[in-house]
Amino acid sequence: MRCDRIEDLLPAYADSALDPRERAEVEVHLASCPACTSLLACLRAADEALAVFPEVDPGTELRGRLVSIAAPRQKFSLFTLLRKPSLQPVLTAASVLGVVASLYLLNPGRRDFEKNVVRTFHRGVGRVEKLYAQAGGITGSIGSFAENLYASLRSSNPLERDKD
């Protein structure tokens, strides 16, 4: 068998992964080929050196960089936003409004309440109108009284009477 064919089989030979026929062929070749025997020795030496290849420490500076990447980022969260102290008065007012609105909307006597409100409103409007009409009558009486007073004053004044 030629060296290039044997060389391809050497890794499997070193791992004892060849079938008996191929293994025998390789051993026959190695017995008469110093170059392939040397290559097999180097292959085993390389395997051994790679297996105990040292691990290098990445250093504290890199570790610091990696930890800073891992630190939790400030993401937008509705929950965080709602917990802001500056929003608390607004949220309290909204809650109170919500309670009042729900009490009103869910109240079973809501219709009667609305009717009462409308009735009271119209009654108030009627009263205002009546007061306005009464105020108009009083104004007219005051006007005619003033005119009468003025006329009587003129008639009782001798100077004014001479002019006429």
């Binding site: 391809d8 050497l10 890794p11 040397s38 290559l39 180097c42 292959l43 030496a45 390389a46 790679l50």
Partner: peptide, 9 residues
């Protein structure tokens, strides 16, 4: 592995 072995050789 073979290539590295050749480099060593």
């Amino acid at each position: 592995r073979l290539q590295l072995a050749r480099i060593l050789q």
